[in-house]
């Protein structure tokens, strides 16, 4: 019984993090048509900014004040990044390749910048809430429980935004036909910025969630990013629901595999399953071929 609760909790927790990260990747891909390899470091940067604001060793603000400020800062960094290293290449036929290299370079810059500013020493963020909660005899930290409960709400809000609100429609439209967007009076550059900023804020939030749970380090974003890659390959980049489902499926797969097969071989197993899936269904489990959202 307790193992089942364990697996379910772990699946839900990891799934929440993966979903939050993968959705940001999908958002940027569908609107701008580039893949952001700096997404993982945006997570790191968000977590470290929150640490700077909230840690008792630094400013010591309450986490609920630090959180929104850190998210805004993450969004601002994402926005600037977009303007500096993505926007100039939009419209070139090799934009995908160029963006891969510039975002990789940005990842390297931010990772080492974090290292220079905050040092290699592992640090920890104050959790969103202290203490543990008992569920069916299993103790789970309040921090984890909050994440498990809040993430679906955030994802639902994002879905609502993208499918029901005019600005969200505009974000989806920009992915599909840039000229037509200009002709209905959309500010295309601002929408690109918005997509990147939103994705960066989601990444920052994931970083803060993670930083309150494990130790933070300058390279903390790389492992979740690689998992998010697997997630978007499974779920497809073209939709928003696909990566969300895939995130939870993969998290559960991992939780089960870690329990029965062990931590060591789980990555290899995951990759084997990924290869098999791709050979059978190349465009991902849930995706359409096109670049569109929702």
């Amino acid at each position: 019984m307790s193992t089942i609760v364990d697996i379910v909790m772990s699946g839900l927790f990891q799934g929440s993090l993966y979903a939050m990260i993968a959705v940001g990747l999908a958002l940027v891909w569908t609107t701008i048509g580039v893949f952001n390899f700096a997404h993982g470091v945006l997570m790191t940067v968000g977590a470290y900014i929150a640490w700077q604001l909230a840690s008792s060793d630094a400013l010591g603000l309450p986490i609920f004040i630090a959180l929104p400020i850190a998210l805004l800062a993450s969004a601002a960094i994402g926005l600037l990044m977009q303007a500096a290293i993505v926007r100039p290449f939009i419209g070139r036929p090799d934009v995908v390749l160029l963006a891969v290299i510039t975002t990789l370079a940005a990842a390297s810059i931010f990772e080492n910048g974090t290292l220079l500013i905050w040092g290699p020493r592992p640090m920890q963020l104050p959790p969103l809430a202290a203490g543990t909660v008992k569920i069916m005899g299993i103790g789970i930290s309040a921090h984890q429980l909050i994440i498990i409960l809040v993430t679906p709400v955030i994802l639902a809000a994002l879905w609502f935004f993208l499918t029901r609100m005019r600005l969200g429609l505009a974000l989806r439209a920009v992915a599909q036909n840039e000229d037509a967007c200009h002709l209905v009076g959309l500010n295309v550059a601002a929408l690109y910025g918005l997509a990147f900023g939103l994705a960066a804020a989601l990444a920052g939030l994931a970083g803060i969630f993670l930083g309150g749970f494990t130790f933070m380090s300058p390279t903390m974003g790389s492992e979740p990013l690689s998992k998010a890659l697997v997630v978007v390959i499974f779920g497809g980049l073209g939709t928003i629901a696909g990566p969300i489902f895939a995130a939870y499926i993969i998290a559960f797969f991992e939780a089960i595999s870690i329990y029965f097969i062990g931590f060591y071989w789980t990555p290899a197993l995951l990759f084997a399953v990924l290869i098999l899936t791709l050979m059978l269904k190349p465009e991902g489990l849930f995706s359409r071929r096109s670049r569109s959202l929702a």
């Binding site: 690689s226 390959i233 980049l237």
Partner: peptide
């Protein structure tokens, strides 16, 4: 992009 992702993921794994 899917080729990028799969090969990148391969490296990570």
């Amino acid at each position: 992009i899917y080729v990028v992702l799969v090969t990148f993921a391969f490296g990570q794994l």
